[in-house]
């Protein structure tokens, strides 16, 4: 095809967008309600504590209903550095997606760490919650995590 034909080609932006309404249920709902009160809640089954709260034990499949409150601190289990955030990311400066094991939990939560350099983070780094000012009863009530020195 000639260059002229290419430049004559019609193009148009097209946005495909759906607003999903997601039910939170009794357990995740209470977990999100906890976040809006700046509380980290997990569900407990024997020695295992799940954060984010799980409705069913992923190992034994038992129905879980016992909540425990956990501190705002945790440990980085793994991470991916995002050097150039794109427009759909919630943080518009370099940050890390990280699996964070909240102190006292036996599972990890996926969230973001920022206000640091890539070289500052390693597996085992200690982090603390930074709360969002505006609460929406969603995971966004945690703005991000920040590194702490202990």
């Amino acid at each position: 095809m000639s260059e002229k034909n290419k430049s004559d080609m019609l193009r148009a932006p097209f946005k495909l967008e759906y607003d999903y309404e997601r039910s939170t249920g009794p357990i995740i709902g209470k977990f999100f309600e906890g976040l809006s009160n700046q509380q980290i809640l997990g569900t407990k089954n024997g020695d295992n504590v799940y954060v984010p709260a799980a409705e069913f034990d992923p190992i034994t499949y038992e129905h879980l209903s016992e909540f425990v409150e956990l501190p705002e601190t945790g440990t980085v289990k793994s991470f991916t550095w995002i050097d150039q955030p794109r427009k759909h990311h919630l943080i518009n400066k370099p940050f890390a997606f990280a699996l964070i094991q909240i102190d006292g939990a036996t599972s990890s939560i996926l969230h973001m760490i920022t206000n640091c350099n890539e070289s500052d983070i390693e597996v085992g780094s200690r982090v603390k919650v930074s709360w969002s000012e505006e609460k929406t009863e969603t995971i966004k009530d945690i703005s991000h995590f920040e590194l702490i020195n202990e």
């Binding site: 095809m1 034909n5 004559d8 080609m9 019609l10 193009r11 148009a12 932006p13 097209f14 946005k15 495909l16 967008e17 759906y18 607003d19 999903y20 309404e21 997601r22 039910s23 939170t24 249920g25 709902g29 999100f32 309600e33 759909h88 929406t136 009863e137 969603t138």
Partner: peptide, 22 residues
């Protein structure tokens, strides 16, 4: 009590019609 939240899923395309459709 809030029992749901809205989760928008969005994809931005740049649609090229092609020679015949153009």
């Amino acid at each position: 009590k809030k029992d749901h939240f809205i989760s928008p899923i969005s994809l931005d395309y740049n649609y090229t019609a092609g020679a015949a459709t153009t």
